[in-house]
Design a protein around this nucleic acid. Sequence first.
DNA 1: TATGAATGAGGTTTCATTCAT
DNA 2: CATGAATGAAACCTCATTCAT
Lengths: 214, 214, 214, 214
Amino acid sequence: MNPERRRQTRAQTQAETRTRLLEAAAEEFAAHGFAGASIDAITARAGYSRGAFYSNFATKADLLLELSEVQMARFSTTALPAILAATEPDRTAEAARYLLREAPAGELLVLVELARLRPSHPELGGVIDRLTTRSLAFVDEVLTAADTSSTAAEQPAPSVDATERRALTQALLAAVLGLLLLRDLGVDLGPDAAQRLLRGVLAPSNDDVGGGPR
Amino acid sequence: MNPERRRQTRAQTQAETRTRLLEAAAEEFAAHGFAGASIDAITARAGYSRGAFYSNFATKADLLLELSEVQMARFSTTALPAILAATEPDRTAEAARYLLREAPAGELLVLVELARLRPSHPELGGVIDRLTTRSLAFVDEVLTAADTSSTAAEQPAPSVDATERRALTQALLAAVLGLLLLRDLGVDLGPDAAQRLLRGVLAPSNDDVGGGPR
Amino acid sequence: MNPERRRQTRAQTQAETRTRLLEAAAEEFAAHGFAGASIDAITARAGYSRGAFYSNFATKADLLLELSEVQMARFSTTALPAILAATEPDRTAEAARYLLREAPAGELLVLVELARLRPSHPELGGVIDRLTTRSLAFVDEVLTAADTSSTAAEQPAPSVDATERRALTQALLAAVLGLLLLRDLGVDLGPDAAQRLLRGVLAPSNDDVGGGPR
Amino acid sequence: MNPERRRQTRAQTQAETRTRLLEAAAEEFAAHGFAGASIDAITARAGYSRGAFYSNFATKADLLLELSEVQMARFSTTALPAILAATEPDRTAEAARYLLREAPAGELLVLVELARLRPSHPELGGVIDRLTTRSLAFVDEVLTAADTSSTAAEQPAPSVDATERRALTQALLAAVLGLLLLRDLGVDLGPDAAQRLLRGVLAPSNDDVGGGPR
DNA sequence: TATGAATGAGGTTTCATTCAT
DNA sequence: CATGAATGAAACCTCATTCAT
């Protein structure tokens, strides 16, 4: 009755419904894949009826797309500051720790679904491209921040020209994706694995990397 | 007329049927996932009718298991020798080339399907463990081969103790998965990215790699 | 402020809402049938939301009943005077023109829906009977008017006894339904066809109509 | 086991399944309309499972189309010979009797459905046009047969030029459709109504039809 | 061995209806 | 009065599987 107390109740209620459905969907998609996750299971997990889903999303594919957008946004606004907050030489360790301990479970498996759906659902191409483009831009931003935060000549820039920079960005993104995927698959990753992978990628790309000091 | 000859022919015919069904299944699983791939689509792609499938496999899950075995075996007998045949420093390039150009699309993602099926299909546990073990063993084999093929002191062993070895194995597997995932997402990976990632992982794990002063 | 004026406005507003919903329903029922017409489509076509429907009608079947009443009333107050306003021999042409050019598409087919709903909705029986009775009464009224408007002996009454009258009424209704059905099926009916059919029915029922051997 | 006894069993079995499903569909469509008839009700009435339907028809709309074709074919091969077998002046009575007593129940209501589906299913246009074209051709054939069977000058041809013939054909088809529709709606038609309608249409189209002998 | 008609559980989606606002 | 989020029954359709041939 109190209008103050009830203000925006309708909108808030629906927003919460959407949020809970998205969370449930993330878990079901991760557990059973896109085709294997049923809308009944998603809505039951979220505590709603079947119809609530169709009040908030047009189709199952629409849900996957919205989920992808939400997860990507969260990745950029949560993971990025967390990683950049640490200063070298702890940044690599901090990034590894975040990826392994705090990154939402199952997040990467949704990407697997998108990759699979692409050939048979050409209309998803645009969304997928946007996601990967954003991911690469995000990684590039991390690298730029790393450059900037390095004091002067103490640490050489990890890359010099555009080609190098592109290879580095792709490699770093592949490393992050691979680590999260392995983790989500149930492998008990030790911190050493993540650090080694990230450090290796970020190492100066001298041609003799992999060789000895010689 | 000759029963010997005819029996041979029969066996050959059936073998070809199985092979074609497995090939078609690999493509459909990669494209749509396990739950999303239909037996009709698989048999149609192979040029058979529904019944041919059930003459050769008990269930859809059974098909996935056989396919996993076949792919793992092929990976070990075809890809591995090709990679090992090259000597350093070309081996890394060769491995990168294989991953990006020749590895069947979505092949490693079959692991994702198996991992997903495990909770609801406890009877698959044994097979999944066998595959996981083989995967790790395969990576270990690559590393060992790298050790062995290196002439003496020219190239130091990439790992020294068990802990190190485990971290290295996990990192390498993560790198491979990440690269394949990015590729399947449509990112145009240059060879530099893959080489950098793999070289970085395989680099000697000096504590100061990528970092320390000097 | 004036409650009298406001009450009037309210009533008018609601009346308009009902009218627009009924018009939209007529079009949707004609296009898709009762079962195939959705309340969402009806309200959207009328420019309202779902809730407006349930503020004005109890159920979907209730809407159909009200619509039937309205259409029947309109048919009697609009079409009938128009047809009767013309004098013979133009009356037949006028009736044909109305049927082919002005009768709302699918209007009479609402009868089909009502007949279909009867077995599964016994409570509708009374309304259906009322509509059927009115339909026959309407046709009878047309015939009576035809009798009356004929000047004296110029035109013999089209029917003489009750049996004849019943046959004539049924034939006329069949002719009207047949013409509307053909029209709705997309046949490009010329005015000649309708006139011939109606004139034939209304012709004196001499036993030798149709050409006995004289 | 006896190959003679079992010959063509597969094909025969499926043909019977299709036939029974089509019969059941005709009854359900007539009773509840296209949208109101459920596939479950159709298959249950035919004595099959839900899936049997999809082994024989692609979609529900596909079933409606096939049913229309079958009914039209049956109309041409059954009704036409029966009507033409009688000689004048009994032909009109025979036609009326057939329409009221032997024509399959509900047959015409399927046409109502087709008329309704046309606006929203443009792909049905071709089929509907084919059906109406065939119907008109059939009616024309009846009229031609009537001409031919009339002995010489005894009975003037019911139509003379093309325009007249077209109007006559349309009127006759409308009469038949109207009669069947009324019958299927539950009206207890007496033979007089049908005969009057048909005779009236077939009467010579002198301009003074409907007038008196002056 | 291979075929494909038939089964029926279960999936996605629609939609009449309710109810808090 | 009107809105529209939520409900849940029931619809259409898919598909893994069985079985007679």
